[in-house]
Amino acid sequence: MTAPAAAASQAPTRPILSLRGVSKNFGAVAALTEVDLDVAAGEVVAIVGDNGAGKSTLVKVLSGVHRADTGTVTFADREVTVASPADAHALGIATVFQDLALCENLNVIQNLFLGREVRRGRLDEVTMEIRSWELLRQLSAKIPTVRVPVASLSGGQRQTVAIARSLLGDPKVIILDEPTAALGVAQTAEVLNLIERLRDRGLGVIMISHNMEDVRAVADRVAVLRLGRNNGVFDADAPTEEIVAAMIGASDNAVSRRANQRRQSRQRRQRKEEE
């Protein structure tokens, strides 16, 4: 059922990052089995899947936290090994983890440059501040001042800081793990705008999400994982039911049953009102 959809939506250009047959086992548990994934420059690929589908494992393989057991990773036409977060960084694969990993007590500049401060003997705060502003301007980030501790920023602003930080190393591919999970409506819209700007700058974006609405709002293609395996790649305008079915594994599932029930009860109510 999903095969034709997958065939219809191959990557539009040569992929900058592609995975072939990547598997990862944790003891007896096969977290990923023969997973393929392509991301092109200037493309947003969403990875969706139910709990335990292997989304986070895939992120960790790409960001160098875990090593894949088998399979190949090709980056910019070269086969590479991503053995550590530093490797990923050196290649130009940046990851924004779900918990953002910011230091609340440090200000925006200090967080952006944490671990790679600009030095001229001592820390060069002025240069760092200027580059912080340039970076935040590029992202049209709405942060009034960079000299406040991150603790006083809103969730969306923190997400922006985390994304800006990942851009400092001039990456080619950026991976966002559940970027909108903890955000409100307006902040979510802000982050989605940010993702579109990243795409427009020619970055390949991989976005992990639970939220189908957000996925459909920005993704060019949607890759579905189910129980650690590929379960189809869809165009962003594919019907939600179809994608959900691929996530859960059948057209008759809890989600569709619930939707049907709601539809029927609504129809029943309407009939009553008409009477």
């Binding site: 977060p85 530093a86 983890f97 953002l100 990993a101 910011l102 230091c103 609340e104 007590n105 440090l106 200090q110 944490l114 671990g115 790679r116 401060e117 030095r119 001592r122 820390l123």
Partner: peptide, 23 residues
Amino acid sequence: RTGWGRSVFAVGGNAEAARRAGI
């Protein structure tokens, strides 16, 4: 004013974040 001092504050604020930042 030094990188060492910055990393001391970072570790005190969020040791895991500091580790992931390469400290």
